[in-house]
Amino acid sequence: MAVAFTINGKAASVDAGPNTPLLWVVREHLKLTGTKYGCGAGLCGACTVHMDGQAVASCQTMLSAVAGKKITTIEGLSEKGDHPLQKAWVAEQVPQCGYCQSGQIMRAAELLAKTKTPSREQIVTHMDGNICRCGTYPRIVRAIERAAREG
């Protein structure tokens, strides 16, 4: 059954089972591989995308729930990779292996969209669902603060 939705501002229609995780729809059906598989259980945040502006775990969001929704992935966050967070990620040299970083940035983008200048505590609370095994947490915090500051 084909399900229609908007992805990164473009109309999309994907023919797959209604219980197909959005993660695989995005990565393998639509070939937008910036969104990553980390746990398949909503525990690590590597698959974070936006659905109507809310950060969701795409591995826990089924295709049937996406009908008519607006999905944004890391590829659609900015046209040229120059979202304030992406610029801050480069300035603070955040990523190491980089695998979790799309999810980290998408999660952080939700925070900044709602809270222009988040406190350290707000950042930590908001980001706590996203694991970085390389341990880039100190730089993630600094990059979010920089993005809030520099806009």
Binding site: T33, G34, G81, V90, Q93, V94, Q101
Partner: peptide
């Protein structure tokens, strides 16, 4: 600056699990 940061901040860096080969199965 590291050469890989921009690609790792834009979802463009490719890992083995991102490879797409025509006709491939899973």
């Amino acid at each position: 600056q590291r050469i890989d940061i921009a690609e790792k901040s834009s979802g463009k860096m490719l890992y083995a699990s991102d490879v797409q080969v025509p006709g491939m199965l899973y």
